[in-house]
Design a protein around this nucleic acid. Sequence first.
RNA 1: GGUAUCGUGGCCGAGCGGUUAGGCAGUGGUCUGCAACACCAUCUACAGCGGUUCGAAUCCGCUCGAUACCUCCA
Length: 487
Amino acid sequence: MNNKLQIYNTKSRKKEEFVPINKDYVGMYVCGPTVYGDPHLGHARPAITFDIVYRYLNIKYKVRYVRNITDAGHLENDGDEGEDKISKKARLEQLEPMEVVQHYTISYHKAMDDLNCLAPSIEPRATGHIIEQIEMIKKIISNGFAYEVNGSVYLDVNKYDKSYKYGSLSGRKLEDALEGTRDLDGQSEKRSPVDFAIWKNAHKEHIMKWPSPWGLGFPGWHLECSAMSEKYLGKTFDIHGGGNDLTFPHHEAEITQSNAANNCEPVKYWMHNNMITIDGKKMGKSLGNFITLGDFFLGSHEKLAQAYNPMTIRFFILQAHYRGTLDFSNTALIAANKGLNKLMNSYETLDKISASKKNSYNIKELEGKCYSAMNDDFNTPILISHLFEGVKIINSVNDELTDIDNENLILLRKVFKFFIFDILGLKSNKQSELNTTDEVMKLILKLRNKAKNTKDFETADLIRNELKKSGIQIKDGREGSSWELIS
RNA sequence: GGUAUCGUGGCCGAGCGGUUAGGCAGUGGUCUGCAACACCAUCUACAGCGGUUCGAAUCCGCUCGAUACCUCCA
């Protein structure tokens, strides 16, 4: 049995044994959403991935889990030249930027809650940490790794590269990066195309801006994570997570900023979840092929054959390892849904079966395999396959084909409860009451309509009157019948 | 072009040198008034070509193909 946790570190590109910096404590920072749109399936992947990490580490350590909300500084496009995403959305919808932020933060939280992701210990926002970001910029400037031009501050990557190695996370070399950048026609204020903004001067029409030593402006996107992770987790912390599309430039920039400001590496273990794909292509906002989580829960998207319960989404994601791509399809989701139901049904059966003197199983061994799977870089698909081994045991005992003794039965109950609910964070997939009620009511209204059409008003009235007694009002209108709860 | 990741049976998806992954679908059963659900059993693999090895899906090389990052994206 593998009883030591191994984590794949993007930086070393191999699995390493997890040893926290401070015994018994773990600091984990995960890049959260930029709140300018509805949460989509892509947001669910890192949230669930690191929810699992958080839940598993919590067994052994006291974990501080920090996940930011980006509500400023994230530019729309073109590196350092585009418009702030939140500002743009606010401008288009004629809202206060914080109204945009509030709206999408709430919908993000709701979706995460539906997916049964535990809330982070701290959920800091970029706009709440302008001062910390300014202080960090000052340090970077005084260390000589940044320069100011027209009220903007840029990190001098060429100079940084002389003292530290730039590109250590993504494997990029500075020369290659320089080659890959396109000619900016001398329009840029930057000394080199690889430099990036840590503070941007705000134009007059820009609606989100703060005073700084360099004038009115706003922080560069990469900076918030460096400043906030340092504030809540220290200059060096254990785990930094996020989607693998953030490896470069975002996380590379974080390393650069931390070294430039504090002369130390910020992160011990870098973890990156892979993307969800749709028809083999990355699902993403910029590609316009994303499906929102709301769409999944309601089935309201042309790609969706039906509505999917949040737990089906969660199980679907957990059936693939977090570092692999996961291709979306209806058949895969339906398969996940059925598999989940099977697992949950057997959990219910587990309560009903009884122990005997004879015993056919070694549950201790099964438990060990479950832990080994999790210790191997959080291999949830393997864990799930072991749980299905348990399903076979439960059904077999239930069918009186084999026996289990009391000791093993108690352990099996413990193992199932622990891994299914505490670690994988699954919940019973029974449809919400209201959903079911709605389906049932649709049928009743259909039957009543049939009665009305055959002038069987006795039946129709019986239905209406009996339902009213149960607190449901039927409303006949020109468009047909509907129902509502009587308040 | 540069940097990575990957190509597994009808579908999804594990595997990290030798033993059944698992789920879904299919097939055959059990259950049922008939079904559905549920349960049991079971078939189909390792992109191609070389090499290392007693032994390779697993290591190495080449070929073909796919994807991601190099502008913003989880």
